[in-house]
Design a protein around this nucleic acid. Structure first.
Lengths: 356, 356
DNA sequence: ACCCCCCTTGTAATCGATTACGCCCGGTGC
DNA sequence: GCACCGGGCGTAATCGATTACAAGGGGGGT
């Protein structure tokens, strides 16, 4: 059916070895032969069978990408960045959506290993996973993205929100808030843990109280954010500001407040995490902590390729940036303070990641 | 290095043929042998090499997906739906982002064919493409999604917005609008052409004028929508309503109006296309034409598998639904009309696609 | 008791590339 | 003029599975 090296060899009047050499650009072929081979390949419409090549070379030029939720703008942007970077290096990406379920994740890992991907990029779902240990044991190159696992030694690239979160708390306090609630993610995820911890220490640094009732746990989905907002707003003494640690949960919070007719920015403050394009179009535009997604994706690929080619790699922690807009009452005649004078609400900090 | 059938065969004391048969669940193996083989495979941690299998069977259980823009929520949702459906059928998907560039698309096609994908799912970029003809000529199963090409015979699955657009125009007219502008996509795309055409006929049906100055062309990106909005609002006689035919351009329109301090819904009406979750969170919530994305993705996979296994497939046209919210002035004491009485603004029509 | 059939199993070819190895030939150094 | 060296090329092994074909063996029918 399809044209093979043998066909090309026959037409060019040479051996399959020469065809392979000529086409792969290896040396050890005369210019004359190379020319004849290229012409024959062209004439026959030869298209190398990478399946056969992979079998022989044990390289598939493919990486497996497992993310928890493609529809989450953060992850779809991440997937985009990763595909882009991989493509630039001649790698293809097999996309897998673990749906935050360990079983699915493990099934995909198994699948990808059977497909002999050259490496694995993933945002792990939960703490323990037999499939993951198998990967590590077999020495398959792997890099974690956005989340790491305490129990595993794999290199990670992710963004540390601690600094930006501390700035956010300062910002809120400067705007007069003291009763600030947080909606965090599952404590089995580093992001969920770390962002909560960062928030806690920032509050403590400002000598503010953070009672348990103001700490809520979601699952990174919009609806869990909405439910958390319901609980918070139904409190005897509701918070004056709510901080949600991912974009979907922020969406849910926004939705619930809107439903109750609360004016965000004046009646109550909302701060979010991540920065999809539409965050600035909400009313009011959202103040948020933004992650350097593009750089993270590119770095993930670089690290994985290094793991594939060189061996060991070290982890990378990137910084997040606080993007101040209007959802925390910045426009509502804020108290005159040092910080608010130096960060006027209408001066949106430029995202300096070089992304987008 | 890795465990192979030969290793399993040796340990189980049988031939490689028996191993293959036992593990693939084929009949013609005794229960005893099957048991021994499974045990041996288990003990050795055998993981089949699908590369070798694919070489032999000429099936890769892989489909190639080429979309123009992963970051567009419409396409990322589509990609999600497709991956989901493919996975259910035991197929993996290689994700490619053509970035609306023909060269990139063609490069990806070439790549995917070299990888011997079992089929191709794509949203084609432009009218003509040599790589695409090559696919067709070679008989590689292919299904177009969301866009079709007049010059090619491949089956398509997409959503026809005509009916919903006509309803939208009715809706706008009932709210008192007559000077309605449209921001459409490249006329090289079916969607761009069809939606404009549908809008034109709907306007004509209502005997409304649609001068050229009210027809603008974007490229499906937010910024092109913003620029079109600038031009429209700078007109001597600006429109009272603007309809943008995809979600990103709608975003741009929204942005520009917000920038000018226009109150959407009262000063000017905006209607969009697609329905990402945050459309209902904008202020005001957007009235929009929504596509059955999930069903489209599932259908695309079904069609492709049928093309792979059976042969020919026929195209499918799905219907869009008008989702009425508040961005067209629905809450602003609309004129009492038949339609507005029967479609009160606070009664959001349920999305009956069964998605999400 | 004999034969035939079918079920089970093994041997080896096969998919399409890459590549180790060896041959041949021309050129160079002595 | 002879031996050696090395570049160019072909032959055939190889990657790891699937599968066509053949062969062996047990059971049932007559």
């Amino acid at each position: 059916m399809a044209v093979t090296v043998a066909d090309v060899a026959r037409r060019a009047g040479v051996s399959t070895a020469s065809v392979s050499r000529a086409l792969s650009g290896a040396d050890g072929v005369s210019a004359a032969v190379r020319e004849r081979v290229v012409a024959a390949a062209q004439a026959l419409g030869y298209r190398p069978n990478t399946v056969a090549r992979s079998l022989r070379t044990t390289r598939t030029q493919t990486i497996g990408l497992i993310i928890p939720d493609m529809v989450n703008p953060f992850f779809s942007e991440l997937a985009w960045a990763i595909e882009e970077a991989a493509h630039e290096h001649g790698y293809s990406v097999i996309l897998c959506n673990a749906n935050e379920e360990t079983d699915r994740q493990d099934g995909y890992i198994e699948l990808l290993l059977a497909r002999r991907v050259d490496g694995l990029l993933l945002t792990p779902v939960l703490e323990e996973s037999e499939a993951l240990r198998a990967v590590a044991r077999q020495g398959v190159p792997m890099v974690f993205v956005d989340r790491s696992l305490a129990s595993m030694e794999a290199p990670v690239v992710r963004a540390d929100g601690s600094l930006a979160i501390s700035q956010l708390v300062d910002h809120l306090v400067d705007l007069g808030h003291e009763r600030i609630a947080v909606i965090t993610g599952p404590q089995a995820t580093v992001t969920g843990r770390e962002r909560l911890a960062a928030f806690r220490t920032a509050m403590r640094a400002r000598s503010l109280d953070l009672p348990d009732e103001l700490v809520r746990f979601g699952n990174f989905q919009a609806d869990s954010g909405r439910r958390a907002a319901v609980e918070l707003l139904d409190l005897d003494e509701p918070p004056t500001a709510v901080f949600a640690i991912d974009n979907l949960m922020t969406l849910g919070v926004f939705q619930e407040m809107r439903r109750r007719g609360l004016r965000i920015g004046s009646d109550i403050a909302v701060a979010g995490f991540d920065d999809p394009p539409w965050f600035q179009l909400l009313d009011p535009p959202l103040t948020t902590v933004s992650q350097p997604v593009t750089r993270m994706g590119a770095l993930a690929v670089d690290m994985l390729l290094e793991a594939i080619n060189a061996g060991s790699v070290e982890s990378h922690l990137l910084d997040c940036a606080l993007v101040i807009r209007e959802s925390c009452g910045e426009t509502a005649a804020p108290r005159e303070t040092f910080r608010s004078r130096h960060m006027p609400p209408d001066e949106n900090p430029v995202n300096d990641y070089g992304d987008d």
